Amino acid sequence: MNKNTKIYIAGHRGMVGSAIWRTLTAKGYTNLIGESSANLDLKNQQAVKDYFELQQPEVIIDAAAKVGGILANNDFPYQFLMENMQIQNNLINTALQSGVAKFIFLGSSCIYPKLAPQPLKEEYLLTDSLEPTNEWYAIAKITGVKACQAIRKQFNKDYVSLMPTNLYGTHDNFDLNSSHVLPAMIRKFHEAKLNNNAAVTLWGSGTPMREFLFVDDMAEAVVFALENKLPDYLYNVGTGEDLTIKELAETIQKITGHQGAIIWDAEKPDGTPRKLMDVAKMHDLGWKHQVQLEQGIQKTYTWFLENIENYKQVKL
């Protein structure tokens, strides 16, 4: 890999894709390409083929996906299944047909069974049933992992899948109808603080345990996979550390300065009881996260405050 290698980043304007772009640029990579969804519909097979023929990328990083939390997954199961499969299938198959030698596919920890042993090891994939609240997205991502594995096996190409834990950070989505738990909490506590420290109501019991990785650390993991030929097809990317949703809420409450009450709505679903990643495989190869949770939340909240007025996904 050299700094002039032509690298196409799908989803380069999203939270993960933009972090990968910033990180590669900071490391001196000079030939990055990406297109907005308005210019290139990744669900359109012919459009993807035409783009690859025109640009002839040497490496593909697939950070494009239709994403959302429990509410969005529950309300739009077909879109989460079909649109994600369309996006990744078009990218993976066109990359193979175009002779792209290296492909990095990004998935999610939700590919693992709901009640799998903790921490989650890569070999637990497809050993039991999925969490119902996000199985549509999970199934789509599993097909992407298996497609890349099949290409490695059949064509001996360096196609690798990275499964991040829950990601958060700058450029996150703070729309309460589609955001994940951490950015949603940041917005809720911030707005409640402005509203005379009103009480904040949160879903579930607060007892599930979750692991969170700052998006810049995820970008570093992608660069690690880019610059090294990883020996296996699937790697977890996370911190290997988790906390309860209640502890997360209290941490965010402290950082935002909210002084009111927290009310837990036990009528709402909790989701998977625990999702902690076993990251030993990446650690053994030499990658480890650098940003601690409280530091990362502070950075994210600072970015949120700086972009309330002008960032399209912060719909206040």
Score class of each variant (00 low, 15 high):
Asn228Lys: 10
Glu35Phe: 09
Thr127Cys: 04
Met1Phe: 02
Leu293Asn: 03
Ile142Pro: 05
Lys49Gly: 01
Val67Lys: 04
Val215Ser: 01
Trp287Lys: 10
Gly99Ile: 09
Ala72His: 11
Thr272Ser: 15
Gln313His: 13
Ala221His: 03
Asn310Val: 06
Asn236Met: 06
Thr94Pro: 00
Glu267Thr: 14
Gln149Phe: 09
Phe80Tyr: 15
Tyr311Gly: 03
Ile186Lys: 02
Glu309Cys: 02
Ile111Val: 15
Met85Ala: 08
Glu250Phe: 10
Gln259Pro: 04
Glu220Ile: 01
Ala150Ile: 06
Val237Gly: 11
Ala221Cys: 05
Ile20Phe: 09
Ile9His: 10
Lys6Ile: 00
Ile70Lys: 10
His190Tyr: 13
Tyr78Arg: 12
Thr302Val: 12
Asp172Ala: 12
Pro231Ser: 06
Ile186His: 03
Asn156Pro: 08
Met185Phe: 11
Leu167Trp: 06
Gly271Arg: 13
Glu267Tyr: 09
His171Ser: 14
Gln313Tyr: 15
Leu91Glu: 13
Asn310Ala: 09
Ala150Thr: 08
Gly17Leu: 02
Leu316Pro: 12
Gln154Ile: 08
Glu267His: 11
Tyr29Val: 06
Gln154Thr: 12
Ile87Pro: 03
Ala225Ser: 10
Phe212Thr: 01
Ala38Asn: 11
Leu96Asp: 06
Gly34Leu: 07
Thr256Ile: 11
Lys27Val: 00
Ile139Asp: 00
Leu126Arg: 11
Lys102Thr: 07
Leu106Cys: 06
Lys312Val: 11
Ile297Trp: 09
Lys3Thr: 11
Asn134Thr: 06
Gly14Phe: 07
Lys312Arg: 09
Leu276Phe: 06
Val215Arg: 04
Ala147Asn: 13
Phe214Tyr: 15
Gly17Tyr: 02
Gln149Pro: 04
Ala26Cys: 01
Leu182Arg: 00
Tyr168Asp: 04
His12Leu: 04
Lys275Ser: 13
Asp278Val: 07
Glu220Gln: 13
Glu191His: 04
Glu241Ser: 15
Val237His: 12
Gly11Gln: 00
Gln253Arg: 14
His180Cys: 14
Ala219Cys: 00
Gln292Pro: 00
Met163Thr: 12
His283Lys: 14
Lys153Phe: 13
Ile186Leu: 11
Gly107Cys: 07
Lys157Cys: 07
His171Ala: 11
Trp21Met: 14
Pro273Met: 14
Val100Leu: 13
Pro132Tyr: 14
Tyr311Asp: 15
Lys281Phe: 14
Trp136Tyr: 15
Tyr235Ser: 07
